[in-house]
């Protein structure tokens, strides 16, 4: 079972050195204990481009698909046996990167 842990924040400010160090420690633990699938940081909403090519419409729009005060600044994809494990890991991740996170299961 895999879970997407989205990191939510109200600014695109990069992680501080301290936050980076904590994230590295957490990532190494995820890898060592077999939970790690993938992770990454994202550019802010202003760097987003929305495409709608249904029926070859080829519509290209500048900006995110929805404007909101908070947005996704990064994510982890974790492999965990159930939600309890995923939530425990996500809580540690939130603490490490010093931001809110949202946990969603892959179907």
């Amino acid at each position: 079972m895999e879970y997407l842990v989205s990191v939510i924040h109200d600014s695109g400010a990069l992680a501080t050195d301290e936050e980076h160090a904590a994230i590295d420690v957490f990532n190494e633990r995820l890898q060592a204990e077999g939970y790690w699938v993938f992770a990454g940081g994202l550019g802010g909403p202003t760097s987003a481009t929305v495409l709608d090519n249904r029926a070859d419409a080829g519509v290209v729009t500048d900006g995110p698909f929805v404007e909101s005060k908070e947005f996704i600044v990064g994510f982890w994809i974790l492999r965990a046996p159930d939600l309890d494990v995923a939530l425990r890991l996500a809580a540690e991740g939130s603490k490490a990167c010093n931001r809110k996170v949202e946990v969603r299961p892959f179907l």
Binding site: D82, D84, R104, P105
Partner: peptide, 10 residues
Amino acid sequence: KTARIPYRVP
């Protein structure tokens, strides 16, 4: 079911 909340004593 979808998020796999476990059926377990914590």
